[in-house]
Design a protein around this nucleic acid. Structure first.
Lengths: 203, 203
DNA sequence: GTTTTAAGTAAACATATGTATAGGTAGGAG
DNA sequence: CTCCTACCTATACATATGTTTACTTAAAAC
């Protein structure tokens, strides 16, 4: 990235801080007042330089449309968290949504992605603990041995998934639990999605 | 929350979508055009109703200063990720910052909080794997047995921390590793902070 | 020494934008 | 029926805001 002068850095910092505080960009005159300048032109020059050098975006040519490029301009997505899923209710029914959590857009590219709170110690061996949140991307299949959310009858669980011909094995990754074995013909088992991330808070 | 009419919901949805797309709020005339209205007054009425009912904020009285109240208005914070820390460099020097990750403000209330990439399998027993990111809140002490980032000489590691009088034990939580024992007098050991969360991506 | 660049003053200008005044229509509540 | 509210048109006004032209000063680049 091209070098910017100290003054330009000051202006950029002010714009970042302003957006953090107000959720919208400062006007040129906001910036002018903050630096005690007596003309808008000085500010315009700085902004033009910062745009040229790739630190700001000004593609929309309207009021307060400045965008900061780079680290502070993170795109996020609010992903719904479904808690312990009530039997029979569709997984993502509004009744089940406990909260929304912000996630980097990189992690949540797919439509329909959601968080699920894991209960039970069955995945301890795969370093997923009781109470952890798993990020789930809905899909009807997973690769051999991937960790999936599987719906058995009316309940959803997190298991490592294997399929040998028509034999389906769900591994708990915990020595205290035996693998659960199903057969393809069993109608009451379905892959909900793949676990793509694990989140845990420790306090 | 007070009820809103279908039309008001449409307007609110449009404002939300517009902000998602542009990062700044629509002007009254943007909304007017979108709904094909022939006067700005209709829009103004809707906005006034939505503000009265608590769905929008309009405290700043300037251009594009509308803010949506509620679930989609999540407060986030960009937390720096430091990778494998180069020996001798201060932990949060700009040279070490690999990236910034958005985190819910609830999780990152403290100033100075940062992510650290864990390397090695020493914390496998505590369900922290090689490559996981841990969220670290800087503080000079931790409670008995809490997971901490500890700096030994020039290197930072993640360990479960115990202190008995002047004897310090760092537990690896992996049966293959013996606890590391230090004594208070040793100058080259210092608690960097407490691990408050664990993040892992699986793909 | 001349040119270029950064940084700024001064004074406008055109448009964007929020707001207001003066109505109109339709439907529900009383 | 009357009143109120939701929803809308038409028009206008004041200010906010981005942009431009003309000129200045100081320091860096060549």
């Amino acid at each position: 990235m091209k070098k910017i002068t100290d003054r330009q850095k000051q202006v950029l910092d002010y714009i970042c801080d302003f957006i953090d505080e107000h959720s919208y960009a400062p006007s040129i005159r906001d910036i002018q007042k903050h630096f005690g300048l007596k003309s808008t032109k000085g500010v315009k020059d700085h902004i033009d330089r910062l745009v040229e050098k790739g630190y700001l975006n000004r593609t929309d040519g309207t009021a307060r449309a400045l965008k900061v490029v780079g680290e502070r301009n993170t795109v996020i997505r609010n992903v719904p968290l479904v808690g312990t899923v009530a039997a029979g209710l569709p997984l993502l029914a509004e009744e089940n949504i406990e909260d929304y959590l912000p996630v980097s857009a990189d992690m949540a590219r797919t439509e329909g992605i959601f968080f699920l709170r894991v209960n039970g110690d069955s995945m301890t061996g795969a370093a997923i603990l009781d109470g952890d949140l798993v990020l789930v991307r809905p899909q009807p299949f997973v690769e051999q041995g991937e960790i999936a959310v599987v719906r058995i009858g009316e309940e959803a669980t997190v298991k490592r998934f294997f399929k040998f011909n028509t034999r389906i094995e769900l591994h708990s990754e915990n020595p205290d639990f035996e693998p659960i074995v199903y057969w393809d013909e069993d109608e009451d088992i379905r892959i909900v999605g793949k676990v793509t991330a694990v989140f845990r808070t420790l306090e």
